[in-house]
Amino acid sequence: MIVAKELCKRYGSRDILMNINLSVQRGEVLGVIGPNGCGKSTLMKLLSGAEKPTKGTVEINGKFIKSYKQRELAQTLAVLPQEAIPEIGFTVREIIEMGRYPFQNWLGEETKNTFQEESIVDQTIEILALKHIVNQTIENISGGERQRVALGKVMAQDPTVLMLDEPTTYLDIGHQLQMMEAVKRWQQDKELTVVVILHDLNIASMYCDRLVLMQDGKIQTIGEPAEVIKEETIASVYDTEPIVIDHPRRTVSPQIILDPQ
């Protein structure tokens, strides 16, 4: 569960975020949408503890984020960043094992449950269909596989709260859906609390329980996809006038069709 109260962030004399209040229930998927530069990434940095707010507080599972130790926080909250895993020469398996770091002592042994590590890393490899490439180095696999490995690393972290920053960027539509399906199955399986930044409004509409639409560092609208994805709202925030239609096969996921003048 995540609760943010009166969050503000200021860099120099520029206000990036102003008075953000939101809460995400356990097991809920909250999508964050909005144009470039609206403060989505900064919001995620504050919610994940990567940066401190200028004002306001963040609570994760009922405890202020600033009172967590870094390691303790990593046992609860995992972040899948926008950047792909750099070419660092480690194998797929080694990278997924890195997700176990917060649960290991300085010798690399599991501190809580010793045989759990093997099974969770193996399970992850199994679930994400990475078995055939576990011993390949990250340089030698495709972009779609790399993103699955990045997801595998956060899955091995076994968090209760998950934050994803544009997990589908750079992927083709097939891999985008594959990625989102993998996240969704995992989310439902473990009842994860999820915050996800998305650029693709159609994907956001289909995979999120609620959406936050941001504009100029403030929350413009927050609600279920059908309440947020509306022609006039989208037009006012994105400065373009799309057509919004109901999804032919789903009831709660309005879809957008671009219609440049």
Partner: peptide, 19 residues
């Protein structure tokens, strides 16, 4: 071990629990 995580980038290392 912490330096291994640094190869992923500082922010990733942070989210994996490295100070």
């Amino acid at each position: 071990r912490a330096l291994n995580l640094f190869t992923l980038g500082e922010r990733q290392a942070l989210h994996l629990g490295v100070n």
